[in-house]
């Protein structure tokens, strides 16, 4: 999926990318930023510092014959930023609501986000419920398998996991949200459901692929002149978002690694 970015160059010239505005919501420290950074830059940082305000990232993907440009608002999970959230989800076509599978309270917070979105956001919004940090619990369930994955990814942090978890069996982090419970909730509320690990990349691409599949892209394309009320702020944002140079530039950030410029 991430190679799609390369294809976006020449291919995009004869194919206008579909812009999908996506917002990440969820409790603090569940891994929203890590999820996005895995998706956009394919990198992972242990002990990531909290997001301040909101971060804006873009990523182009190719889905079948279309190029999709995700414009992602990665919001801060802290309570004091809650009042700013409507600004980010107001015109979003998709939302990823993240919880932490090792923390039951984070699912409760996720549910309250779902309610808020269903009440206040765009009625056609595609919502994906995502349980993150499954690497922590997979580690306990089937250690050998997971170790293999970690090695594959060449995680430099592998040692730190060892220290954290393998020293002491009892200290191992337990899953607090069973897959079935969250999955059942997602089904009854009409949400997409995933379990991911931003750390080893498991399931991350699927989240965005499935969202892309579910969004009525044709509809967006045809109505992008009008209905796709762009950006954070209606009119101004739209003009800027469709500024070709701007788009190219942001889309190209992957090559430069961590620097979003």
């Amino acid at each position: 999926m991430s190679q799609a970015n390369d294809a976006a160059g020449p291919a995009a010239s004869n194919m206008k990318p579909v812009q999908v505005k996506l917002v990440l919501l969820g409790e603090a420290a569940v891994g929203k930023s890590s999820l996005v950074l895995r998706f956009v830059n394919d990198e992972f940082q242990l002990n990531k510092e909290p997001t301040i305000g909101a971060a804006f990232l873009t990523q182009k993907c190719r889905l079948e014959d279309k190029v999709i440009k995700f414009e992602i608002w990665d919001t801060a999970g802290q309570e004091r930023f809650h009042s700013l959230a409507p600004m980010y989800y107001r015109n979003a076509q998709a939302a990823v609501i993240v919880y932490d599978v090792t923390k039951a309270s984070s699912l409760e917070k996720a549910k309250s986000w779902v309610k808020e979105l269903q009440r206040q956001a765009n009625p056609n919004i595609v919502i994906a419920l995502t349980g993150n940090k499954v690497d922590l619990v997979a580690n306990r369930k089937s250690r050998t398998q997971n170790d293999g994955e970690v090695d594959e990814d060449g995680e430099q942090d592998a040692q730190e996991i060892d220290e954290d978890e393998e020293d002491d069996e009892d200290y191992a982090i337990t899953r607090q949200v069973p897959t079935e419970e969250a999955s059942a909730y997602a089904q009854e509320s009409g949400l997409l459901f995933f379990e991911t690990s931003a750390k080893n990349g498991q399931g991350v691409a699927e989240v965005f692929t499935e969202i892309a599949k579910k969004i009525p892209l044709e509809h967006i394309l045809s109505s992008s002149r009008g209905a796709r009320a762009g950006g954070v702020n209606g009119s101004n944002g739209r003009v800027d978002l469709q500024n070709g140079a701007n788009g190219q530039r942001l889309g190209g950030q992957q090559e430069k690694g961590g620097c979003a410029c």
Binding site: S33, L37, N41, K48, E49, P50, T51, I52, G53, A54, A55, F56, L57, D74, A76, L84, G258, C259, A260
Partner: peptide, 13 residues
């Protein structure tokens, strides 16, 4: 104080 701004464009009050 934080590296969080290095990876994206940020917008904060």
């Amino acid at each position: 104080g934080s590296t969080t701004f290095e990876s994206s464009e940020s917008w904060t009050p």
